[in-house]
Amino acid sequence: MNAKTADKIATALIVTIAAIIILILAGLLGYILIRGVGHISFDFLTSPPETIRAGGGIGPQLFNSLFLLVLTMIITIPLGLGAGIYMSEYAKPGRGTDFIRLVVEVLSSFPSIVVGLFGLLVIVNLFGFGFSLFSGALALTVFNLPLMVRITEQGLKSVPREQKEAGLALGLSKWKTIRSIMLPIAIPVILTGTILAAGRVFGEAAALLFTAGMSSPRLDFSDWNPLSPFSPLNPFRPAETLAVHIWKINSEGLAPDAPEIAAGASAVLIITVLLFNMIARWFGRYVHRKFTATK
């Protein structure tokens, strides 16, 4: 077999695999959206489950998912960025650094049910946070932190060495070089890790069953006192997220229109993730252009 034939076969094989992956993704998204979009309405998105239909309405669950995303990212992003910067620029090569990287790899492969049980025993019971959004955010941080650390480290290492050395040669401190030169260039890579971490927050259910809980108090959206037990801004209240609600509505079988509710909630979840990804990528490109003065 000559080189041209081998190249054509390899190209055809790679294109075929890529097409199969795209078709699978398109089929999955199309199936979920076609089944669920027809059940979405304004009342469905804003009303609690007990107000319309038997089990219908996902307003509190949708809000809980978004609120949990914000809490988790507030915890994950500073810790992930700090650890990634340390591993990339400050940690000296050696057994200690290799051990830290091994721990990060192990954490990233933990099953969600194990993290959920850990959260139940340590965060919920031992630390006394109870079933709450804050407990769920801490449990999800265990998932997301390894990803953020690795992505940040890889993003900083992808910065051309010449640019880093140019900053140091101009008399900039190491931290000033990282903050003003390296981080803006690495933002697209770091943003990709943030999007992946956020997607897991939206879709995670197993860990949240044992930490955030499977029920929510009747929320009063006119009460914005974060210390009130019925306030939607209270991070220490139990909260059923959208992914948990989909699992619960199907497993209990109490609602006569459970398949329709689950289909509509699944479509909302997919649309929310897609919108978040597009907005985050647009914001990342804007920040990258702003800091690097590129068009």
Rank of each mutant, 00 (worst) to 15 (best):
Val244Pro: 00
Val244Asp: 01
His245Glu: 12
His245Val: 05
His245Arg: 14
Trp247Ser: 05
Trp247Pro: 00
Trp247Asp: 00
Trp247Arg: 02
Lys248His: 04
Lys248Trp: 03
Lys248Pro: 00
Lys248Asn: 10
Glu252Val: 04
Glu252Cys: 01
Gly253Ile: 07
Gly253Phe: 04
Leu254Gly: 00
Leu254Ser: 01
Leu254Trp: 06
Ala255Asn: 05
Ala255Val: 06
Ala255Arg: 09
Pro256Asp: 10
Pro256Cys: 04
Asp257Met: 11
Asp257Gly: 11
Asp257Ser: 14
Ala258Ile: 03
Pro259Tyr: 06
Pro259Asp: 07
Glu260His: 06
Glu260Arg: 07
Ile261Val: 15
Ile261Asp: 09
Ile261Asn: 01
Ile261Ser: 12
Ala262Asn: 10
Ala262Gly: 08
Ala263Met: 06
Ala263Gln: 09
Gly264Lys: 00
Gly264Pro: 01
Ala265Ser: 12
Ala265Trp: 00
Ala265Glu: 04
Ala265Cys: 03
Ser266Trp: 11
Ser266Asn: 11
Ala267Met: 07
Ala267Val: 06
Ala267His: 00
Val268Tyr: 01
Val268Gln: 00
Val268Gly: 02
Leu269Thr: 08
Leu269Val: 12
Leu269Ile: 12
Ile270Leu: 15
Ile271Phe: 13
Thr272Ala: 15
Val273Asp: 04
Val273Gln: 08
Leu274Thr: 14
Leu274Val: 15
Leu274Asp: 04
Leu275Phe: 12
Leu275Trp: 01
Leu275Cys: 14
Leu275Glu: 04
Phe276Cys: 08
Phe276Lys: 06
Asn277Met: 13
Met278Asp: 05
Met278Ile: 15
Met278Cys: 08
Ile279Leu: 15
Ile279Asn: 02
Ile279Tyr: 03
Ala280Pro: 02
Arg281Pro: 03
Arg281Ser: 08
Arg281Ala: 07
Arg281Glu: 13
Trp282Lys: 09
Trp282Arg: 10
Phe283Leu: 15
Phe283Ile: 13
Gly284Glu: 02
Gly284Leu: 02
Gly284Tyr: 01
Arg285Ser: 10
Arg285Tyr: 02
Val287Arg: 11
Val287Gly: 09
His288Gln: 13
Arg289Asn: 15
Arg289Asp: 14
Lys290Leu: 14
Lys290Met: 11
Phe291Ser: 04
Phe291Asp: 02
Thr292Ala: 10
Thr292Glu: 09
Thr292Tyr: 01
Thr292Val: 13
Ala293Pro: 00
Ala293Leu: 09
Ala293Trp: 07
Ala293Phe: 13
Thr294His: 10
Thr294Lys: 12
Thr294Cys: 05
Lys295Asp: 15
